[in-house]
Every structure is written in structure tokens, then in C-alpha cells.
Amino acid sequence: MKKVWNYVFIALLVFLFVEVLIVFPSKLQHDDDKSVRERVEKQEAEKSKNGGKPGEPSSLSDQRLGGVHLVESQQGMRDWELFANSAEGSQASGNWKLHQVKVLFYNKEKVEFTVTGDQGSIDAKSKDLSIIGNVTTTSVNGYTFQSPSVYYSSVKRQIQSPEDVTMKGPKDKTGEGMVLKGRKMLVLVDESKMFIQEQVSARKPMKDGKAFDIVADGAEFSGKNREAKFLGKVRMTYDNMRLEGPEASFLYGSGADMLSSVAVKGGVKVSDADKFATSESVNLDLLANKYVFKGSPKIIQNNDELTGEEIVFLEGGKKVKIEKVRAKMENKKR
């Protein structure tokens, strides 16, 4: 009798074991089927909404992802880091269309530039990026560039935009940030430099109500400091003064958040209501309110011609000081 009960007990254990094996997989398979069914129903609804026919097989290009985060590295260091609200594309090709994109571009493991835009795409082979629609490129020190699109070359480590660009510089103690319009932006990520290569026009307001207005062929900005450089046929006005030359630099004191001077060099022409001057270079010292002409300076005021090794306009041009006079003031008829 005891052996019979042992057999019965063993039989019950076997029955329960088999029941567990049968019931639990059945429950798991049911949950998987429900999940798959919900995904299929969602895909069918999306296809119907987009003009597709229900029941047609889904292609790889119909795949969609949410909350995308990608990191690309070169030689063991981060090249770029990308975030997107969603993506759609093909796993077979590796090419994806991204929505609401944010890309961080690194230089020596530090974020150097940030680019945001409505849409983007990645080339699976080259790792090049395209960002289109309301694109903003921001440097680590506060320069922002707005353009319809930008394109990033992974090999060259360059961000480019061939279209119109609007730039806003960071505010400083001397006034609001510089505002610039131009065409063809080029950003060198490794060197942390930004260039506007065509049709530059800019304005730098000052707190005293004055402003610099600049027209130039091109402009260069640094992501390391506030300095700005204008190149090629530079024409600039400040207060009542007009300056022309091939190069003009906006300079900030070391560690200072203040525009200290503007240097124009390469053969400069300067004029105001009653003076005309030429020299190799002119430095506008904004803190001391004086203008220094060097390199064969010559100034004509009324009928007087002033020459010397260095000529300085004091108090914004109200007084003139001549260093090492080479010729006496003479009266001449024009």
C-alpha cells in the first residue's frame, strides 16, 4: 500500500511539472502575440494614413524609432554625439531620416559646437551628417549662426552651409553682441574657427549710442575668444568716421569681456567731416578714446597737410598729436 501511494505521489509531481511547462509558455506566447498584433495594427493604420494598402508587407524603410541617441568616434575620441526625437529608415542601408535633431561636435573630448535643426540624415558609410530646417549652430563661447541647412564632413571635420547666414555674437560690457548677415558659412571644428565667406554686413552696437557698421568680403570668428576679423575690401563707419582697408580686427583685452580696440591695417583710408588721412595702419583705442595712425601717416585737414612717424587723434579726433614730425605743416590749395 505504501508503494502504491509513492507511485501516486510521483505521478502527481510529474503531472504538475508538465502542467507548468504547458501553461507558462502558453501565457508568454499569448503576450508576445498581443504585442506583435498591436505593432502590426499600428503599422497598418500608418500605411493606410499614408496612402498604402492594408495587408501589404511592410518594408525596412517603414521602420521607425523614437528617442534616438548615437555617438560617432574617431581614433578613440568622440567625433559627434547625436540626439533626435524620432527616426525612420532602413536597417539594410543604415541610412536614417531624423526629426528634431541636436548634434554635439567634439574637439579633444570637449563640446566645441552644437547644431540643432528640424530634420537630419546620416550617411551610413562616411558618417557625414546633413541637418535641414531652422538650423542653429552655436559655438561654445556664445556665437550663434542661423541658416536653412548645414552639412558636416566627418573626414574634414568641417561644418558648412552654402546659403544665407545670420550671426549673433555674445553680449559684452561695451554693448549688445555683433549682428551679421552673409553667405557661405564654414566651421573648422578642430581649430574652433568660424568663417562667413561672402557678402558680409555687420553691426556692433556700443553702450554710448554709437555703433560700428561694417561691410566686407568675408569675416572670421574664434570659438576660443571674442575676437573678430573682417577681410577684403573692408568698409567701416564709426560715429562720423569712415575707414577703408583690406583687414579690420575687433580686439578684446586679455581675459576681459570688453571690446578694447579696432585695428585696421594693410593700407588704410580714413575720413570724417573735415579730415582725410592715409596710413599703413590705424588703431582705434576705444578705452582711451584715441586713434593712432602708423606707417607713413598723412592727414589733410582744411588746407593743411600733416605728416610724421605717428599721428594720434585725441578725444575722439578733437585734438591731434604728431610724433617725430618729418615735415612742417604747410598751407596748400587743393
Score class of each variant (00 low, 15 high):
residue 130 S to H: 06
residue 153 S to C: 10
residue 311 I to F: 01
residue 160 Q to W: 06
residue 175 G to F: 03
residue 124 A to G: 11
residue 51 G to K: 08
residue 43 Q to P: 05
residue 61 S to K: 02
residue 104 L to V: 07
residue 214 I to F: 02
residue 168 K to M: 10
residue 306 L to W: 01
residue 273 A to Q: 10
residue 153 S to N: 09
residue 136 T to N: 09
residue 176 E to L: 00
residue 211 A to N: 01
residue 88 E to W: 13
residue 185 M to D: 01
residue 318 K to S: 14
residue 260 S to E: 10
residue 210 K to G: 01
residue 214 I to W: 01
residue 207 K to E: 08
residue 326 R to P: 05
residue 300 I to Q: 05
residue 305 E to F: 07
residue 51 G to W: 05
residue 329 M to Y: 11
residue 115 V to S: 04
residue 186 L to F: 05
residue 198 E to D: 13
residue 113 F to G: 09
residue 221 F to I: 05
residue 32 D to G: 13
residue 151 Y to M: 08
residue 35 S to N: 12
residue 307 T to E: 08
residue 112 E to R: 06
residue 143 Y to C: 02
residue 115 V to T: 13
residue 249 S to R: 12
residue 233 K to D: 13
residue 320 V to L: 10
residue 217 D to S: 06
residue 44 E to T: 06
residue 137 T to A: 08
residue 268 V to F: 02
residue 262 V to Q: 02
residue 302 N to L: 04
residue 213 D to W: 03
residue 279 S to E: 11
residue 140 V to R: 13
residue 45 A to V: 14
residue 265 K to W: 07
residue 8 V to F: 07
residue 3 K to I: 08
residue 220 E to Y: 11
residue 45 A to I: 14
residue 199 Q to S: 15
residue 4 V to L: 11
residue 18 V to N: 13
residue 132 I to E: 02
residue 165 V to E: 03
residue 236 M to I: 01
residue 32 D to V: 15
residue 271 S to M: 07
residue 207 K to M: 04
residue 115 V to N: 04
residue 60 L to D: 15
residue 197 Q to M: 12
residue 186 L to M: 10
residue 326 R to E: 13
residue 148 P to I: 03
residue 185 M to C: 06
residue 318 K to L: 14
residue 21 L to V: 09
residue 18 V to Y: 12
residue 107 N to W: 07
residue 323 E to T: 08
residue 28 L to I: 12
residue 52 G to T: 09
residue 260 S to I: 01
residue 283 N to H: 07
residue 174 T to L: 04
residue 226 R to E: 04
residue 72 E to K: 12
residue 158 Q to H: 13
residue 206 M to E: 05
residue 91 Q to G: 14
residue 124 A to P: 15
residue 183 R to F: 08
residue 23 V to F: 15
residue 51 G to C: 05
residue 86 S to L: 07
residue 311 I to P: 00
residue 159 I to P: 00
residue 3 K to G: 10
residue 289 N to M: 06
residue 30 H to E: 10
residue 124 A to K: 15
residue 24 F to C: 07
residue 92 A to L: 09
residue 22 I to K: 15
residue 56 E to L: 07
residue 21 L to W: 06
residue 319 K to D: 14
residue 142 G to T: 03
residue 1 M to T: 12
residue 251 L to G: 07
residue 49 K to H: 11
residue 135 V to T: 05
residue 218 G to V: 02
residue 88 E to G: 15
residue 54 P to M: 09
residue 31 D to T: 13
residue 11 A to N: 09
residue 97 K to H: 09
residue 68 V to T: 10
residue 73 S to C: 02
